[in-house]
Amino acid sequence: MNAAVERLAEQAADAARVRALTTDPDVIALRVERVRAQVDGLLWAGIVLGLAFTMVNVQSFAAAGAPTWSAAWWVAWLLDPMVSLVLLAVLRAEQVTARYQVALPTWARRTKWLTFAATYVMNTWTSWGLGDAPFSAAGVVLHSVPPLVVFATAETGPVLRDRLTEAVHRAVAAGPASTAEQTPVVHDPVEPDVHEPAAEPAARIAETPVRAPRGGGRRKAAARPRRLLADYVRAASEALDSARDAGEQVDVTPAWCRQVTGCSAGTSVKVAAALRAAPASIDSARSRDRRPVAGEEVAA
């Protein structure tokens, strides 16, 4: 007896879990989406087959007895695809809008009805006896069924999609309350904020940036040794002696002194004056010390 009761209790618990899952809004939405995919596939299959059936009759209507394989006969095959493609575009857009319960604008519905009417008239024109062929009741019924089925399918599809969406909405509304609504919210006690005066930051000492030396950090060239007046006089005297030993006649001028010593224009005047002086003065200049004397240091 106890075993039977326990088994029955387990079955009841399993049934409760299954019922909780089957009534869950997410599970219902998943099942509805599967049904929606099946319905859309069947509807599109019927529409495409119906339009393909009407293609031959529309081509015969457009060819109007043109010879087979002629240009008019080939062009007649373009009439039915032209109308069908426009119709399929409207139906595809309506499939998406119906999913979210959005109605098509007026011109979209007019375009759909116009393409259906054109397809029906061209498909049944000959059967009604409006051409050279006699009236045929069987032909009217035969060629009226595909366009009318396509029309009914196109009008029924949006309604079915709208009802499927409404089923999902009702399942969500009738479902159990969300966990957020069932779980009470417990607020932790919050301690009052104590605002303490913030300590003023110490004044920062701005450091003066050290600028890099001009010239991109290049090393300065080694300073040339400073030459004295006596050095220039000695160099000019040696050049003069060498020229006289070679038998050359040299006119001691500032330009010549500047050429042989490389001194400046102002110094060359002093060097030329010293060379034109007595030989004793030259010897005295040669015997001078190389130390700079006040008034004799001249920049090169």
Rank of each mutant, 00 (worst) to 15 (best):
residue 118 A to V: 06
residue 218 R to P: 01
residue 96 V to S: 05
residue 34 R to C: 12
residue 25 P to R: 03
residue 92 R to E: 10
residue 84 S to K: 07
residue 52 A to H: 06
residue 213 P to D: 15
residue 262 G to W: 10
residue 260 V to S: 07
residue 284 S to P: 04
residue 139 G to N: 11
residue 279 P to D: 03
residue 5 V to G: 12
residue 298 V to I: 08
residue 298 V to C: 01
residue 249 Q to I: 14
residue 91 L to W: 10
residue 48 V to F: 11
residue 199 A to Y: 07
residue 178 S to K: 01
residue 187 H to T: 15
residue 238 E to Y: 06
residue 105 P to C: 08
residue 243 A to M: 05
residue 30 L to N: 13
residue 239 A to N: 09
residue 47 I to P: 00
residue 297 E to F: 03
residue 107 W to K: 11
residue 184 P to V: 11
residue 98 A to E: 04
residue 26 D to V: 05
residue 97 T to V: 05
residue 274 A to E: 03
residue 164 L to W: 09
residue 91 L to M: 14
residue 285 A to F: 09
residue 237 S to V: 13
residue 187 H to Y: 09
residue 152 A to N: 08
residue 233 V to F: 11
residue 131 G to V: 03
residue 258 R to I: 00
residue 132 D to L: 01
residue 165 T to G: 14
residue 251 D to Y: 08
residue 252 V to S: 10
residue 10 E to I: 00
residue 206 A to K: 09
residue 46 G to I: 09
residue 95 Q to V: 03
residue 251 D to G: 02
residue 225 P to G: 01
residue 22 T to S: 11
residue 111 T to E: 02
residue 231 D to N: 07
residue 262 G to F: 11
residue 193 D to H: 01
residue 50 G to C: 10
residue 183 T to V: 01
residue 172 V to Q: 04
residue 261 T to F: 02
residue 132 D to C: 00
residue 224 R to T: 07
residue 216 G to S: 07
residue 281 S to M: 05
residue 300 A to Q: 14
residue 239 A to P: 05
residue 199 A to D: 12
residue 38 Q to F: 11
residue 131 G to L: 00
residue 47 I to L: 12
residue 163 R to Y: 01
residue 58 V to A: 04
residue 125 W to D: 06
residue 155 E to M: 08
residue 102 V to P: 07
residue 76 A to V: 02
residue 160 L to W: 00
residue 295 G to K: 04
residue 121 V to C: 01
residue 196 E to L: 15
residue 86 V to L: 05
residue 26 D to C: 00
residue 1 M to T: 06
residue 77 W to T: 08
